[in-house]
Design a protein around this nucleic acid. Structure first.
Lengths: 214, 214
DNA sequence: ACCTGTGAAATCGTTCACAGCA
DNA sequence: TGCTGTGAACGATTTCACAGGT
């Protein structure tokens, strides 16, 4: 085990390993080797061993990893044994679609409240989640115990919304606005920029013929 | 200029530069230096010059880059001067939310058709886009000139849907199902895995106190 | 015989530093 | 003087290859 900085690339892969272990557990497998795991997605087995070695020595030489044991370890490492409450700012199409995104529930995240500036929307309910006035964000976030915020507003408001979120003491933010945001070091900000992904497809199609692959 | 392989990290940054150039052009700036661009997002100016140098010598020593010229060059390189027609498979919350996602229109992408397996949905219209039977995908895709597919179905169907898409001759695919998919080399597959992003936030909150940042 | 854990090598990406042109 | 384009240094990540445990 090494307690140095762990790269996000590594933790992202842990998510993938965990999913696979959940499947293996459901299928009744008792053990699995890194080679075996590597073949499922096409990864290198050394990478899997290295990723896991960041957190401890979970394997047994000559045998592999015990599926159930590793599953529990990864669940704990990723914090998936804790419940989180999510507030989504922006009750447009995207915000409401996310409200009942199955991935949230699956991952122990619960959408507790939506926020918008539109008078028409405030007070209404979407998928059992109430839409509040964005000006009451800090108050509601505190009252509801919200610890994760999702930014689903147009790009031009995103930075201001982020600042409001940070001011309310929330430390984990997911941003869907297609613009890079600036935040302090202690905030975990994850931007999902669909426009960049689209333009990446566009680039591929423009130069077409040449290689693709993820 | 070097015609070697260009990394996706580079083309992703081109998207960001282009956005910025569009703003600069709107503000009436005539020229901009790499140093100046670098300060807007906090990047290194050498990286910007290197990224651009992959595609040609666009700058002028002592001056910088001509905003309008570079804007047009990048638009062309990213293929944003071409129109694309999108088919979305899965007319659930996510699929329909994407249907009128503003980023599509902005980027010269047009959602031409939705596809679903649910009899109730087939034949109805969402935001002026018709929902077709997924079994007719190849036929409709061909008739409508669809060249980009979006997978917005549950994870367990995603691989099969991808194979159907590839079989119909489409080369660019965006996948929202939280599972890594396998595709041939000549297909450009971009997976946007919200579950991994969520688990990344969860990991951060679990080990909290320690550093965040994008 | 099999499989992990890990140094060492290879690859990929970023940043530095400066030559060279306007 | 100001700024680009780029080789060289640096840093991060991946892969190789094998020692060592069961």
């Amino acid at each position: 085990m090494k307690s140095e900085k762990i790269s996000e690339l590594t933790t992202n892969r842990l998510s993938i390993y965990l999913r696979c272990l959940n499947e293996l557990a459901a299928e009744g497998s008792k053990t699995v080797s890194s080679d075996n795991l590597a073949k499922r997605f096409h990864l290198n087995s050394a990478q899997i061993r290295k990723d896991l070695a960041c957190f401890g020595e979970f394997g047994v030489r000559g045998v592999g990893y015990y599926v159930e044991d590793l599953r529990q370890q990864l669940t704990k490492i990723l914090g998936l044994d804790h419940h989180h409450r999510v507030g989504i700012i922006g009750a447009g199409r995207l915000g409401t679609a996310l409200t009942d995104y199955y991935g949230f529930r699956q991952t122990n995240f619960e959408v507790a409240a939506l926020f918008d500036a539109d008078r028409e929307k405030i007070g209404t309910v979407v998928s059992d989640v109430k839409i509040y006035d964005v000006r009451d964000f800090a108050k509601i976030a505190d009252r509801q115990g919200i610890d994760v915020a999702v930014i689903a507003v147009p790009a031009e408001y995103a930075q201001r919304v982020l600042e409001m979120i940070v001011a309310s003491g929330i430390k984990a933010v997911m941003n869907f606005a297609p613009t890079p945001l600036l935040a302090d070091e202690e905030i975990k900000l994850k931007t999902i920029d669909l426009t960049i992904s689209l333009e990446s497809l566009s680039y591929f199609l423009a130069g077409s013929g040449k290689n693709g692959k993820e």
